[in-house]
Amino acid sequence: MTEPGLVRTAVSAVLLVLGCLAMLSASVGILRFPDFYSRIHPAGKADTLGITFVLTGLMVREGFTLVSLKLLIILVFMLIASPTATHALAKSAYIAGLGHWKKEKGKDAP
């Protein structure tokens, strides 16, 4: 793990910050949304975006090495696996007949 130049350090820092923000918003969304189906949205998207940014940031910092290749392998796998796991969850709940929350006029969320 070599010491990169200033530009690369800055770019990777920005990517890491963006990734952490996306991951935090995913967590807050999972905590805050009213029902299971809407919680899937932050889990499937913001989280995928977060890990993409974090791993890309580490790759920029590292440059073209074997470590970067491993990071890329993790990234590709996460990009395939994360939506698939989300979809499997959603399908399982849908088949089991879990009801979904609907917005109603004049009534606030539970």
Binding site: I30, F36, I51, V54, L55, L58, I74, S82, T86, A96
Partner: peptide, 25 residues
């Protein structure tokens, strides 16, 4: 529901992967 729990654990797993990569650095 049980699905909320699995979802949360799955998301925690994603974050653990990021955390492990960061710890390596």
């Amino acid at each position: 529901s049980i699905y909320d729990r699995i979802l949360a654990v799955n998301v925690m797993g994603t974050k653990t992967v990021a955390l492990l990569a960061l710890i390596g650095f």
